[in-house]
Design a protein around this nucleic acid. Structure first.
Lengths: 114, 114, 114, 114
DNA sequence: GTGGTCTAGACCACC
DNA sequence: GTGGTCTAGACCACA
């Protein structure tokens, strides 16, 4: 895992976890590697890893059993999908369409590019 | 004009100017409001507004006549269009397609939404 | 039984037991479920359940007959009542009154809510 | 300002700020002392102070102007009041009433104590 | 072993 | 000057 510069690392980590869930690589009740394990694996400070976990916990995507570890929440897939879809539909798509039109492209042009 | 949090303000300003040019609201030889005017109008630090201008000047989109003001360059439209198109094709489109697929949408879904 | 996040689980367990006593659901000489039983029932680490028992034992609310189990002490009800009343009067009530006033409520408002 | 032990410092700080707002000592558009200033004044690490600020920012109680500082949001008073009231009514009051009854007290007893 | 909090100090981008 | 991110390392409570 290597990190881009324009986004805080903790956010990239939490996005990565969301993607794992969307791709069904991690499913409910799976135990996530501990803060320390992730920190070592990603060559990152434990605090940074922790922060990623906390974000997801607040959104109800991860669940924390104290003294035990972090787990994928039961409805994590649905939650992530909904959150990301809302963001996509309400933010990404309009922005994309807007700059597409401004640059003189149409959806069929995009189709050809994809 | 209100600013998003994920992007530096000076970039949002310079993007805004580019968009004005793309939308043909500002055309070559138009005099652009002075740094101070912009700063006041946008409730922004003059340094910030200045920085936006400098970026555009370096790219040849604005030209500066000392003691007079900033003006839209002759080939500003073409320059902006090319720059933005490259960024769009190489960065925005792939990213858009990627998250589109991950969320289970297709281009025809986007068509319906647009 | 589900646990809140702001308090250690062992304390929540021992509070729970105290409440059973106050509500007269458990009375002197009743044998309390074994540590293992409680641990399984509450989906908790046996160490955690054990710790709850020890606290109550130190306060003279439970008594331990080795090899047999834990039992409610003779004067458990009185002991619990006194301990909890002190805490209530000296800590809970002042804190409650303070935030009540800050939020613009009076005791008669509370009466209506209750 | 001295801190209790049972609660994280960053939470006590953010509660303190909320109380300042409830008590109308800080009003909308007031600039809050910078992270560093607070850190020095409270003899706390800047990171800890920062965390308190972020919590309030997420709740819309503080607003951050980048490179400038943190400010009390326009509707901070209403927001805080509502948040705290909900917590009070839905959590604190029922818990208080419950243990009050369990300990054999009534609201008129509380009145005498207050 | 786990998470959680806190410190100290550095570095950066932004205004 | 401001906030924001990150590291390194310590310490603690909890299970």
């Amino acid at each position: 895992m290597d990190f881009s510069e324009n986004q805080p690392i903790y956010q990239q980590i939490s996005d990565h976890i969301c993607n794992q869930i969307l791709d069904k690589k991690w499913t409910p009740d799976d135990r996530i590697p501990s803060v320390r394990e992730i920190a070592v694996a990603m060559e990152v400070n434990p605090n940074t890893a922790m922060r990623a976990f906390q974000i997801l916990q607040e959104k109800g995507i991860l669940v924390n059993k104290r003294g035990v570890g972090h787990f994928i929440a039961d409805d994590a897939y649905e939650t992530v999908l909904e959150l990301k879809r809302i963001e996509f539909i309400e933010t990404d798509v309009p922005a994309f369409i807007k700059s597409m039109k401004r640059l003189g492209y149409s959806l069929s042009d995009i189709k050809d590019l994809a």
